[in-house]
Amino acid sequence: MPVLELRNISKNFGAIRALNGVDLSLDPGEVLGLMGDNGAGKSTIVKIIAGNFLPTGGEIFVDGEHVQFSKPLDARQKGIEVVYQDLALCNNLTAAANVFLGRELKRGIGPFQFLDHARMIKKAGELFVELKSETRPRDLVVQMSGGQRQAVAIARTRLTEPKVVLMDEPTAAISVRQVAEVLDLIRRLRDAGHAVVLISHRMPDVFAVADRVAVMRRGSKVADKLISKSSPEEVTGLITGAIDVA
Protein backbone atom coordinates (compact mmCIF):
# COMPACT_ATOMS: atom_id res chain seq x y z
CA MET A 1 0.00 0.00 0.00
CA PRO A 2 1.36 3.47 -0.83
CA VAL A 3 2.25 5.60 2.17
CA LEU A 4 0.97 8.69 0.37
CA GLU A 5 -1.47 8.92 -2.49
CA LEU A 6 -2.93 11.94 -4.28
CA ARG A 7 -5.96 11.38 -6.47
CA ASN A 8 -7.05 13.92 -9.05
CA ILE A 9 -5.76 16.90 -7.07
CA SER A 10 -6.45 20.32 -8.50
CA LYS A 11 -5.81 23.80 -7.17
CA ASN A 12 -6.98 27.18 -8.36
CA PHE A 13 -5.67 30.51 -7.17
CA GLY A 14 -8.46 32.75 -8.37
CA ALA A 15 -8.29 32.47 -12.14
CA ILE A 16 -4.92 30.69 -12.11
CA ARG A 17 -5.13 26.91 -12.37
CA ALA A 18 -1.95 25.84 -10.59
CA LEU A 19 -2.74 22.10 -10.51
CA ASN A 20 -4.88 20.16 -12.89
CA GLY A 21 -6.00 16.67 -11.83
CA VAL A 22 -2.70 15.37 -10.47
CA ASP A 23 -2.36 11.74 -9.35
CA LEU A 24 0.73 10.81 -7.41
CA SER A 25 1.64 7.89 -5.22
CA LEU A 26 4.59 7.15 -3.03
CA ASP A 27 5.71 3.86 -1.47
CA PRO A 28 7.50 3.53 1.87
CA GLY A 29 11.26 3.83 1.47
CA GLU A 30 10.92 5.30 -1.99
CA VAL A 31 12.62 8.46 -3.24
CA LEU A 32 10.57 10.31 -5.82
CA GLY A 33 12.17 13.06 -7.85
CA LEU A 34 9.63 15.73 -8.78
CA MET A 35 10.76 17.92 -11.63
CA GLY A 36 9.35 20.70 -13.76
CA ASP A 37 9.93 24.23 -14.95
CA ASN A 38 9.32 27.28 -12.79
CA GLY A 39 5.62 27.71 -12.16
CA ALA A 40 4.82 24.09 -13.10
CA GLY A 41 3.09 23.57 -9.75
CA LYS A 42 5.68 21.65 -7.73
CA SER A 43 5.63 23.86 -4.67
CA THR A 44 1.86 23.96 -4.77
CA ILE A 45 1.76 20.15 -4.54
CA VAL A 46 4.10 20.28 -1.56
CA LYS A 47 2.01 22.91 0.17
CA ILE A 48 -1.18 20.93 -0.34
CA ILE A 49 0.38 17.77 1.06
CA ALA A 50 1.80 19.80 3.97
CA GLY A 51 -1.55 21.33 4.88
CA ASN A 52 -0.73 24.91 3.88
CA PHE A 53 -3.49 25.01 1.26
CA LEU A 54 -6.64 22.96 0.86
CA PRO A 55 -6.90 21.52 -2.65
CA THR A 56 -9.71 22.86 -4.82
CA GLY A 57 -10.55 19.28 -5.76
CA GLY A 58 -9.29 15.72 -5.29
CA GLU A 59 -8.35 13.49 -2.39
CA ILE A 60 -5.32 12.64 -0.29
CA PHE A 61 -4.65 9.30 1.38
CA VAL A 62 -2.01 8.51 3.99
CA ASP A 63 -1.49 4.78 4.53
CA GLY A 64 -4.80 4.22 2.76
CA GLU A 65 -6.69 6.55 5.08
CA HIS A 66 -8.54 9.48 3.53
CA VAL A 67 -7.19 12.68 5.12
CA GLN A 68 -7.93 16.38 4.95
CA PHE A 69 -5.29 18.78 6.15
CA SER A 70 -6.57 22.22 7.04
CA LYS A 71 -3.38 23.29 8.78
CA PRO A 72 0.30 22.26 8.85
CA LEU A 73 -0.11 20.61 12.24
CA ASP A 74 -2.65 18.13 10.78
CA ALA A 75 -0.15 16.93 8.20
CA ARG A 76 2.63 16.73 10.73
CA GLN A 77 0.49 14.56 12.98
CA LYS A 78 0.10 12.12 10.09
CA GLY A 79 3.88 11.90 9.76
CA ILE A 80 4.50 14.37 6.96
CA GLU A 81 7.46 16.72 7.31
CA VAL A 82 8.47 19.46 4.91
CA VAL A 83 11.57 21.41 4.00
CA TYR A 84 10.13 24.45 2.25
CA GLN A 85 11.74 26.05 -0.79
CA ASP A 86 12.14 29.37 0.98
CA LEU A 87 13.23 27.31 4.03
CA ALA A 88 10.63 29.06 6.19
CA LEU A 89 13.06 30.25 8.83
CA CYS A 90 12.81 33.17 11.22
CA ASN A 91 16.01 35.18 10.89
CA ASN A 92 15.64 36.81 14.28
CA LEU A 93 15.52 33.51 16.18
CA THR A 94 18.31 31.08 17.01
CA ALA A 95 18.92 27.86 15.13
CA ALA A 96 17.51 25.85 18.04
CA ALA A 97 14.41 28.05 18.26
CA ASN A 98 13.79 27.53 14.55
CA VAL A 99 14.22 23.78 14.74
CA PHE A 100 11.61 23.56 17.47
CA LEU A 101 9.31 26.31 16.21
CA GLY A 102 5.70 25.25 16.71
CA ARG A 103 6.62 22.24 18.88
CA GLU A 104 8.79 23.63 21.63
CA LEU A 105 9.94 21.38 24.42
CA LYS A 106 8.48 22.57 27.69
CA ARG A 107 8.66 21.86 31.35
CA GLY A 108 5.84 22.49 33.77
CA ILE A 109 6.21 24.51 36.93
CA GLY A 110 2.91 24.34 38.75
CA PRO A 111 0.15 25.14 36.26
CA PHE A 112 2.59 26.96 33.93
CA GLN A 113 4.53 25.65 30.96
CA PHE A 114 7.95 27.13 30.29
CA LEU A 115 10.36 26.63 27.42
CA ASP A 116 12.99 24.04 28.15
CA HIS A 117 15.88 25.95 26.56
CA ALA A 118 18.60 23.56 27.71
CA ARG A 119 16.94 20.46 26.28
CA MET A 120 16.11 22.15 22.97
CA ILE A 121 19.66 23.44 22.55
CA LYS A 122 21.11 20.02 23.35
CA LYS A 123 18.77 18.17 21.02
CA ALA A 124 19.28 20.68 18.19
CA GLY A 125 23.05 20.35 18.64
CA GLU A 126 22.79 16.58 18.35
CA LEU A 127 20.74 16.87 15.18
CA PHE A 128 23.29 19.22 13.60
CA VAL A 129 26.08 16.80 14.44
CA GLU A 130 24.07 14.00 12.91
CA LEU A 131 23.66 16.13 9.78
CA LYS A 132 27.40 16.83 9.87
CA SER A 133 26.68 20.51 9.91
CA GLU A 134 28.73 23.07 11.80
CA THR A 135 25.61 24.93 12.82
CA ARG A 136 25.54 26.10 16.43
CA PRO A 137 22.16 25.96 18.14
CA ARG A 138 22.53 29.35 19.82
CA ASP A 139 23.48 31.30 16.71
CA LEU A 140 20.90 33.54 15.12
CA VAL A 141 19.80 32.37 11.70
CA VAL A 142 20.45 35.85 10.27
CA GLN A 143 24.21 35.21 10.62
CA MET A 144 24.17 31.83 8.92
CA SER A 145 25.39 30.55 5.57
CA GLY A 146 23.08 28.89 3.06
CA GLY A 147 24.27 25.43 4.12
CA GLN A 148 23.69 26.12 7.78
CA ARG A 149 20.20 27.41 7.06
CA GLN A 150 19.54 24.26 5.08
CA ALA A 151 20.69 22.18 8.03
CA VAL A 152 18.27 24.03 10.31
CA ALA A 153 15.38 23.39 7.93
CA ILE A 154 16.29 19.72 7.57
CA ALA A 155 16.93 19.21 11.28
CA ARG A 156 13.28 20.10 11.85
CA THR A 157 12.17 17.02 9.96
CA ARG A 158 14.29 14.85 12.25
CA LEU A 159 12.38 15.68 15.42
CA THR A 160 10.00 12.85 14.76
CA GLU A 161 10.07 9.68 12.71
CA PRO A 162 8.19 10.98 9.67
CA LYS A 163 6.60 8.70 7.09
CA VAL A 164 7.14 11.17 4.30
CA VAL A 165 9.69 13.95 3.97
CA LEU A 166 9.00 16.55 1.30
CA MET A 167 12.00 18.59 0.20
CA ASP A 168 11.36 21.58 -2.01
CA GLU A 169 14.60 22.54 -3.78
CA PRO A 170 16.84 21.57 -0.85
CA THR A 171 20.01 21.87 -2.91
CA ALA A 172 19.26 25.18 -4.61
CA ALA A 173 21.22 27.53 -2.36
CA ILE A 174 24.16 25.49 -1.11
CA SER A 175 27.72 24.47 -2.00
CA VAL A 176 28.74 21.32 -3.83
CA ARG A 177 30.05 19.66 -0.65
CA GLN A 178 26.77 20.42 1.12
CA VAL A 179 24.76 19.07 -1.82
CA ALA A 180 26.55 15.75 -1.40
CA GLU A 181 25.64 15.80 2.29
CA VAL A 182 21.99 16.49 1.62
CA LEU A 183 21.90 13.66 -0.93
CA ASP A 184 23.56 11.40 1.63
CA LEU A 185 20.91 12.35 4.12
CA ILE A 186 18.17 11.51 1.65
CA ARG A 187 19.72 8.05 1.15
CA ARG A 188 19.85 7.49 4.89
CA LEU A 189 16.23 8.54 5.25
CA ARG A 190 15.29 6.06 2.55
CA ASP A 191 17.36 3.27 4.12
CA ALA A 192 15.49 3.88 7.37
CA GLY A 193 12.21 3.33 5.55
CA HIS A 194 11.07 6.93 5.12
CA ALA A 195 9.64 8.03 1.81
CA VAL A 196 11.13 11.17 0.31
CA VAL A 197 9.87 13.56 -2.33
CA LEU A 198 12.80 15.51 -3.74
CA ILE A 199 11.95 18.57 -5.77
CA SER A 200 14.95 19.79 -7.66
CA HIS A 201 16.00 21.65 -10.74
CA ARG A 202 19.26 19.76 -10.73
CA MET A 203 19.11 16.72 -12.95
CA PRO A 204 22.25 15.08 -11.43
CA ASP A 205 20.73 15.20 -7.93
CA VAL A 206 17.55 13.49 -9.00
CA PHE A 207 19.35 10.85 -11.01
CA ALA A 208 21.76 10.23 -8.12
CA VAL A 209 19.20 9.46 -5.42
CA ALA A 210 15.70 9.04 -6.82
CA ASP A 211 14.06 5.71 -7.59
CA ARG A 212 11.38 7.30 -9.69
CA VAL A 213 10.88 10.63 -11.42
CA ALA A 214 7.64 12.52 -12.00
CA VAL A 215 7.54 15.50 -14.32
CA MET A 216 5.11 18.41 -14.01
CA ARG A 217 4.28 20.80 -16.78
CA ARG A 218 1.81 23.69 -16.40
CA GLY A 219 -0.07 22.08 -13.55
CA SER A 220 -0.32 18.57 -15.00
CA LYS A 221 1.77 15.50 -14.45
CA VAL A 222 3.20 14.52 -17.84
CA ALA A 223 5.43 11.60 -16.82
CA ASP A 224 5.98 9.23 -13.91
CA LYS A 225 8.55 6.52 -14.44
CA LEU A 226 11.40 4.59 -12.88
CA ILE A 227 14.75 6.33 -13.06
CA SER A 228 16.22 3.14 -14.53
CA LYS A 229 13.73 3.40 -17.41
CA SER A 230 14.39 7.06 -18.13
CA SER A 231 17.27 9.36 -18.96
CA PRO A 232 18.25 12.98 -18.29
CA GLU A 233 17.63 13.71 -21.96
CA GLU A 234 14.10 12.38 -21.82
CA VAL A 235 13.31 14.26 -18.60
CA THR A 236 14.68 17.49 -20.07
CA GLY A 237 12.43 17.02 -23.08
CA LEU A 238 9.44 16.40 -20.85
CA ILE A 239 10.13 19.49 -18.74
CA THR A 240 10.47 21.80 -21.72
CA GLY A 241 7.60 20.24 -23.64
CA ALA A 242 9.81 18.96 -26.46
CA ILE A 243 8.44 15.54 -25.48
CA ASP A 244 4.72 15.72 -24.88
CA VAL A 245 4.10 12.84 -22.46
CA ALA A 246 5.89 9.66 -21.45
Partner: peptide
Amino acid sequence: QTAWGRYLYAIGGNEQAAQATG
Protein backbone atom coordinates in the same frame (compact mmCIF):
# COMPACT_ATOMS: atom_id res chain seq x y z
CA GLN B 1 10.33 31.62 28.71
CA THR B 2 7.04 30.70 27.08
CA ALA B 3 6.07 29.38 23.68
CA TRP B 4 3.53 32.20 23.37
CA GLY B 5 6.29 34.79 23.73
CA ARG B 6 8.49 33.00 21.26
CA TYR B 7 5.64 32.96 18.73
CA LEU B 8 5.42 36.76 18.94
CA TYR B 9 9.06 36.96 17.84
CA ALA B 10 8.56 34.30 15.17
CA ILE B 11 5.61 36.18 13.69
CA GLY B 12 7.58 39.42 13.66
CA GLY B 13 10.59 37.68 12.12
CA ASN B 14 8.81 35.81 9.33
CA GLU B 15 5.07 35.49 9.49
CA GLN B 16 4.82 33.04 6.57
CA ALA B 17 7.44 30.80 8.14
CA ALA B 18 5.66 30.87 11.46
CA GLN B 19 2.40 29.95 9.74
CA ALA B 20 4.03 27.16 7.74
CA THR B 21 5.58 25.56 10.80
CA GLY B 22 2.28 25.49 12.62
